[in-house]
């Protein structure tokens, strides 16, 4: 059973305002790392917004996840600039290092691996984004060193 006190608190800070749905979902995802069904049901009941509408919003935006995600979200940029500067090689290395495919979580739930199409930092490509920080000018060696930093906490 998912603990619903966190989502109740999030709803409270937004004054149970229907128009704040996306912000509420973002804050709730911050708390639970993903959006469990129970949490969405709670939001639906408290905001008096039909579940179908919330589901529509959650599946529309790529930023929301209905599946559990790892502690750190590692997004490898596959945009044109990063691609020509070696992003595919970095992806292969990271895939092997973490033993996952893009979109999956590592077994210890430490990482979720993603590919993104451009993070807007083409000048320092190839770029990898871990949580909310960008790391540029990477090589496959550097990317593994980077991930090792996040392995412990």
């Amino acid at each position: 059973m998912t603990d619903l006190t966190a989502v109740d608190k999030v709803l409270q800070t937004h004054n149970h305002d229907k128009s704040m749905l996306v912000a509420i979902l973002q804050d709730a995802q911050e708390q639970y790392r993903y959006l469990p069904k129970e949490v969405l049901t709670q939001i639906s009941i408290k905001l008096e917004v039909p579940m179908s509408e919330i589901y529509q919003v959650v599946t529309f935006y790529k930023a929301f996840s209905l599946k559990p995600r790892g502690k750190h979200i590692c997004s490898i940029c596959m945009g044109t600039a990063c691609h020509v500067r070696g992003a595919p090689l970095i992806l292969e290395t990271v895939k092997k290092h973490l033993d996952v495919e893009p979109g999956q979580n590592t077994k210890n739930m430490q990482f979720t691996l993603n590919t993104v199409n451009c993070v807007g930092a083409c000048a320092v490509g190839p770029v990898v984004q871990v949580d909310n920080t960008l790391y540029g000018n990477l090589t496959s060696m550097k990317s593994i060193q980077l991930l090792k930093k996040f392995e412990k906490d």
Binding site: K37, P50, M51, S52, E53, I54, Y55, Q56, T59, F60, L66
Partner: peptide
């Protein structure tokens, strides 16, 4: 008036379905 259906996902994946 029951709103049982949603248009989920987007782009080529967009489809009508019940939540989850």
């Amino acid at each position: 008036g029951v709103s049982a259906l949603s248009l989920s996902e987007r782009g080529i994946l967009r489809k009508p379905e019940t939540p989850f």
